[in-house]
């Protein structure tokens, strides 16, 4: 694994489902420690793009290089990448038959081969970080949505990944729970984690993003630092989108 390579380098990424072109030629480089927020209307390909980075979706053409390793369909490179890339989903996707602690220790023990005691210590450290250590022995269904999503973040962090992907992490939450999840994500960003977040939380983008990317119909339309992105968008479609999300 190349220590100097950018976190993520995507060139000419194409992906279609049947006749529908979800991604048509994405080029994106994310530097180590960079925070990128991806926004755009639904169906614009943002989730597909982020899911290609850890190969939950296989791309049709183009290259994806994560931490210097090319995702070429070989299982070895895939395993290597997935260990280093954590992901948080819109629907949390906690394992309902395991306690919070077991959710957090499973992958470190199976994939990183940590001894149980060490895995549990790591898990408690990250559960404290997401401010939920007292729920360690509960099952996911006993927690609120916001708590579940914070556990999901802790679960991903327990693998001590170098990159975190967030796929609309607050979209399934009740409004009063969005803040507690965003707070955790802000802390994470401030500690220098490389993050790619698909989100419509523009306040979050303004606060932590190094770059905001706007996607529409499978293409990156605009990419700019938040100051410029929000105050002086270059493209009509960006302006229209911003007026829709910010306009009321």
């Amino acid at each position: 694994m190349d220590r100097t390579a950018p976190a993520i380098e995507i060139t000419g990424l194409h992906k279609s489902y049947g006749g529908f072109q979800a991604l048509r030629g994405i080029d994106l480089t994310v530097a180590r420690g960079e925070r990128v927020v991806v926004c755009g209307p639904s169906g614009s390909g943002k989730s597909t793009m982020i899911r290609c980075i850890n190969q939950l979706e296989e791309h049709d053409s183009g290259t994806i290089r994560v931490l210097g390793t090319v995702l070429d369909g070989r299982l070895a490179s895939l395993d290597e990448i997935r260990r280093e890339v954590g992901m948080v989903f819109q629907q949390f996707n906690l394992f309902p038959h395991m306690t919070v602690l077991e959710n957090c220790t499973l992958a470190p023990m199976l994939v990183r081969r940590l001894p149980r005691a060490e895995a549990e210590a790591t898990a408690m450290r990250f559960l404290e970080k997401v401010r939920i250590p007292e729920q360690a022995q509960k099952y996911p269904a006993q927690l609120s949505g916001g708590q579940q999503q914070r556990v999901a973040i802790a679960r991903a962090l327990c693998m001590e990944p170098q990159i975190m992907l967030f796929d609309e992490p607050t979209s399934a939450l009740d409004p009063e729970m969005i803040a507690e999840v965003l707070d955790v994500m802000v802390t994470l960003a401030q500690e220098g984690m490389t993050m790619v977040c698909v989100t419509h939380e523009m306040g979050f983008a303004r606060k932590v993003a190094d770059r905001v990317i706007f996607m529409d119909r499978g293409e990156i339309i605009e990419a700019a630092p938040p100051g410029q992105f929000f105050s002086a968008p270059q493209n009509d479609r960006t302006r229209q989108f911003l007026s829709q999300v910010l306009g009321h």
């Binding site: 395993d79 890339v85 992958a107």
Partner: peptide, 10 residues
């Protein structure tokens, strides 16, 4: 469920 497990490297 399977996606989350994949993403964790299982």
């Amino acid at each position: 469920q399977e996606e989350a497990a994949k993403a964790l490297g299982l």
